[in-house]
Simulated assay, not measured.
Amino acid sequence: MRRIKLKDIAEYTHMSMTAVSLVLNNKPCKISESSRQKILQAAKELNYSPNRLAVGLATHRTHTIGLIVGDISNVFFSILAKGVDCACQAADYNVMLCNSWNTHEGDMHMIDTLADSGVEGIIYCMSDDTTQEDALESKRKLQQYGIPFVEVDSDYTQNHILFDHEQGGYLATRHLIEHGHTKIACLMGPVQMQGTNGRVAGYRRAHKEAGLPVDDTLMTVGDFSMESGAAAVKNLWGREFTAIFAGNDMMAIGALKELRTEHIRVPQDISIVGYDDIPVSEMLEVPLTTVRQPMAEMGATAAKNLIGILREPKKTMEKKIFSPKLIVRKSVRTLVG
């Protein structure tokens, strides 16, 4: 069924398109009340709804926000996107979701795509391979387009929503140390990511606080995917460790899968702590102890801050740093002796 246009209502009422447009857009006009009601009734009977994109292009207000994420299959981004969408719907904004495939080149392409689509602002989760130089290039492009933006989970620019990853890494590692573990493997994310560096800093801080040396041979790099978690554990075979701190829950799940393949039990043989607290974590065969990130709240806060900027351009954005919470379940064993 085709979309009803102003032309259809004009023909239906035998009135001009100008008159129909003025009435339906609630603009001042010298049209009689009876004619106005006739137009409104026709719009109702024909199930007319305005084309928001067309109206937006004419008024420069599309009420649409762009959201760029690295990989929507990563549950972190799925939940964050839900938070963004809920906040936008409450404020009568639409969301246009773009997946950059975790490359800076993809980020730049999506910025162009969103600008061409007339979005009013962008919520930007930079790709995993972003460098300082890449971030500045993205910022310049957004400024050239004149598009306000909020950065999530990195702080290369002034407008950002952050998570205290150092404290998160510290809480996870300290929990393992408190349960008697001194040989703790660390499954890191991409090394250039600020979030990875924060987690690792917390991992090191917990060791230092406990007077324990960090064994760099127990640190291995992944890409936050389940497959990379399994591969990271394979890389650790032959080394001595009793516990694993995984950079996110997806890597932890991959590690669990690999451990099960090798008939290694969790937590009886190896303890493991994840990161994020995605919904499936508590439904695993061994419910996963993990560090909770309030992903939906982070997304909602980013959306509210951006909408605030759009409504009051001179408004200073409130920077927000979210704190981690350790969620204790069943994947950590206390070592005795």
Rank of each mutant, 00 (worst) to 15 (best):
I4V: 15
K5S: 06
D8T: 06
H14F: 10
S16R: 02
A19H: 06
V20I: 08
L22G: 00
V23D: 12
L24E: 08
S32Y: 01
E33T: 15
K38N: 13
K38E: 15
I39R: 15
L40A: 11
K44I: 04
E45M: 14
Y48R: 12
N51I: 15
N51G: 14
L53A: 12
G56M: 08
L57W: 06
A58K: 10
A58G: 10
H60F: 13
R61Q: 08
R61G: 02
T64S: 01
T64G: 06
G66S: 07
I68D: 10
G70N: 09
S73K: 05
N74G: 00
V75C: 11
S78K: 11
S78Q: 13
K82H: 15
G83P: 01
C86Y: 14
C88N: 14
A90L: 13
Y93M: 03
N94K: 11
M96Q: 11
T103G: 00
E105T: 10
H109S: 09
M110S: 05
T113D: 08
L114E: 00
A115L: 01
E120K: 00
I123A: 08
Y124F: 02
S127K: 08
S127F: 07
Q132V: 15
E133N: 13
D134V: 12
D134G: 12
L136Y: 10
S138F: 11
L142H: 04
Q144G: 07
Y145C: 04
I147N: 06
P148S: 11
S154Q: 08
S154D: 05
T157W: 14
Q158A: 15
I161V: 05
D164H: 07
L171Q: 04
L176M: 04
H179A: 10
H181T: 02
K183Y: 10
I184S: 06
Q194K: 00
G195S: 05
G195K: 00
N197L: 14
V200K: 03
A210Y: 09
G211Y: 04
P213T: 00
D216Y: 12
M219A: 12
T220Q: 12
M226G: 05
S228R: 05
G229P: 08
L236M: 01
G238Y: 05
E240N: 15
E240S: 15
I244C: 05
F245N: 03
A246I: 12
G247Y: 09
M250W: 01
G254C: 08
L259C: 02
R260V: 03
H263Q: 11
I264H: 00
V266Q: 03
D269T: 09
S271Y: 05
G274P: 06
D277Q: 07
P279C: 10
S281A: 13
E282K: 09
E285S: 09
V286R: 12
P287E: 02
T289F: 04
T290S: 10
Q293N: 04
P294N: 00
M295C: 07
M295K: 12
A296V: 01
L306W: 14
I307H: 11
I307E: 13
G308T: 04
G308C: 05
I309Q: 03
K314D: 15
T316Y: 12
E318V: 13
P324C: 01
K325L: 13
R329W: 00
R329D: 03
S331A: 07
G337A: 15
